[in-house]
Design a binder for these strands. Sequence first.
DNA 1: CGCGAAATTGACTCTTCTCAAGAGGGGTGG
DNA 2: CCACCCCTCTTGAGAAGAGTCAATTTCGCG
Lengths: 240, 240
Amino acid sequence: MSTQAQNKDQGCHAPDRPATCDVCEVRGRSICADLGPREFAHVEKTMARRHVSRNKSLMIEGEPNESLYVVVAGSFRLSKMLEDGRRQVTGFLFKGDFAGVRSTDASAYSAEALEDSLVCFFPHRYLEEIAADAPGVKDRLIARGQTEYHKAQDHIVLLGKKTAEERVISFIDLIGRQIGADDKDGNRVVPLPMPRQDIADYLGLRLETLSRTLTALREDGRITDVSRHSVTIPADCVSA
Amino acid sequence: MSTQAQNKDQGCHAPDRPATCDVCEVRGRSICADLGPREFAHVEKTMARRHVSRNKSLMIEGEPNESLYVVVAGSFRLSKMLEDGRRQVTGFLFKGDFAGVRSTDASAYSAEALEDSLVCFFPHRYLEEIAADAPGVKDRLIARGQTEYHKAQDHIVLLGKKTAEERVISFIDLIGRQIGADDKDGNRVVPLPMPRQDIADYLGLRLETLSRTLTALREDGRITDVSRHSVTIPADCVSA
DNA sequence: CGCGAAATTGACTCTTCTCAAGAGGGGTGG
DNA sequence: CCACCCCTCTTGAGAAGAGTCAATTTCGCG
């Protein structure tokens, strides 16, 4: 059995009743930010949380999806498959990111956890009720949808026009902006929660090419401390 | 002066007062489909039409955009530039398609007319009023945004994983589904309103490679009647 | 009919892919 | 606690697909 073909429910713990929104790390970055006290009470009633273990699926390409998911902790890989098994990684989700903006009969992509993760989920049938009370919610979904679309267009430019080296640099920069942290000397430490194969499949490169390019960038001094789970961009190479 | 750096207003005729919505070809495919008679009257008051001549810009990457545009007639090329002048075509718009879903300070891409074209435009400040009366409008914007996002993901798969030949076949098929017409023998005639360079820039190929690939496909009999402005997919090669 | 832009074709180069072998690292069990 | 094993990543050598530069042909338009 292929590791791709895992049941959606394996590794997905039973939904938790939270009562934890008060301390939610992504509250304010999520649709919740638009809610007044009354609407928020509604959300707390209809929302639930779910743990997703590493390598388990939150959504599967082609299968129905009824919920909007918000990543509370951890990270996910979004991917699409060609009939012959070639896989394209179309994006990564980190804290505060959404998936499943609209209810669909066939999800356009799969979402798999890169590490043990935690999501909030809002069934769309309830989301509609929430949106009726809080019109800002739909605006936020539109805005987020546009942001995702623009990210996808940047990805298209990367794949269509950039060289291997440019792709790798762009990728490190992109991830660095999302989950990187600057150390005391101004170097940017960029965690890479995904394996090399995922990065290669995101960049449209073979993993050997990715590996060679990382080595070349390290030898040029444009990145340092290249390890399995992170790289560092030296202070003098960090872009604004 | 580069042909890219055209003023947005050159070639954009003064807005017309329409009173033509009754006979609008794309009514029913557009946001208008959600409107009741009262809301529709509102739309007719706040909406206007604009002609855009071939090669003139409807939107320019990096410049503010205040309107939602709906293509009524003609077609557009969406593109993004890299700093060094490399251009990636991110999509094409045909009758009924949208651009500028959200008001932005800096448009993420440029939109240029492939032929003399006609658009409706809805300033976002009025759109907000319309949406207040017709809640379906925002749902439609969300849905359309998702559709665009999914199209972008298909484009990402094309650029990241497909060979030159697969890209060209996918492109012809894609355009064929949107604006192709089947002749009496079941052959699909696919118009190509854009020049080869635009197709190449969409597919992430050099135009010489595109040209060679088209020739090879013609010699294989997988396409016929390859001309400047159209190709034909023989009935036995038309996919469902 | 002829001009000029667009498209095709040709010869050669180079980046990236492919296939293969080797090194590194993390986790488990003895 | 150390050793071993497996999985991931890196490195190497050769092949192939697409890119580059240049010449030629075709087509649309005046």
